[in-house]
Amino acid sequence: MIEVISLTKRFGNFTAVDSVSFRVEKGEVFGLLGPNGAGKTTTIRCLLTLIKPTSGQVRVSGIDALRDPQQVRQLCGYVPQEVSVDGDLTGYENLLLYARLYQVPRKLRKKRIQEALEFMGLADRANSLVKTYSGGMMRRLEIAQVLVNQPRVLFLDEPSIGLDPAAKRMIWDYIVRLRDDFDTTILLTTHDMLEADELCDRIAIMNLGKIAVTGSPQELKTHLGGDVVSITSKDSNCFGVLQRLGYRLLSPSHDGVCDLVVQNGEQEIPRILDELKQHGITTNSVSLKRATLDDVFLKYAGVRIEEGDTTWKHARLTRRTIRKLRQ
């Protein structure tokens, strides 16, 4: 349904998206997972013909997005990362505006709008000005807005950013229902591991403009092969010693923590500690957990995605401030 072949986008000398290729099948929820500045939004904007790629090919439903942008836009729905509903119009009007812009036939408009509002649980607030909505309601309205066109392909840029856990769950449920009930193909971006894990049929891990690996969350975790043992040691030789002993390490140690992947964690831990002791290395603490997407991310991108959390908080704050400004 979506086909991207060596897509590259440069802003001046800076390469935001670097020769990225992937395919999304019909009826699939596909996630682009990456930290701030990975190039996720830029990729989506190229797909939607909002900006011109520097090179590469983009096809949506078999249509060349560079040659026939208008036709591609007619098939798609887009929920941007930032707030994209108009606070000075009512919920109903926000939907009516898009129904008109997408040329939904006059006879169908009312019905589609009503259905979209009910689907997203907003029917009772349809006639209030949107600036009186909560953040979660605005996000739901944004999704309702794209539904009036019954798009075959939906682009959701960080659909749950800035929402509390309950509102997040609600959005996830709607996304799954969209895929199951309407067979919509969905491309979403996120830096939330849990979201990627729960929601996506397949994900692509993206960092610094490149896709490091693609696969289903389960595949990626299995591929990592087992459990993750985290060993903390003040000794800076710890990493080197473990490496020489032939263990699979996830990345260079950060603040004295070495993450290694082993088959049977519980049984391996005593042996590892003994070996370290023999090499004269004292350990401070050890922990064991099942591999998560975050470990997969660490392996392929070289950083933990959560380390970018401060900027994420910043983004969330901005979203909030923007709402305040509007009111």
Binding site: R45, L48, L50, Q70, Q71, R73, Q74, C76, Y78, V79, P80, Q81, E82, V83, S84, V85, D86, Y98, L101, Y102, Q103, I322
Partner: peptide, 15 residues
Amino acid sequence: RDFGLLNKLLSTPIP
């Protein structure tokens, strides 16, 4: 533009 409104408008099929 600072909100997503303009980007969303531009993503619709109107010229």
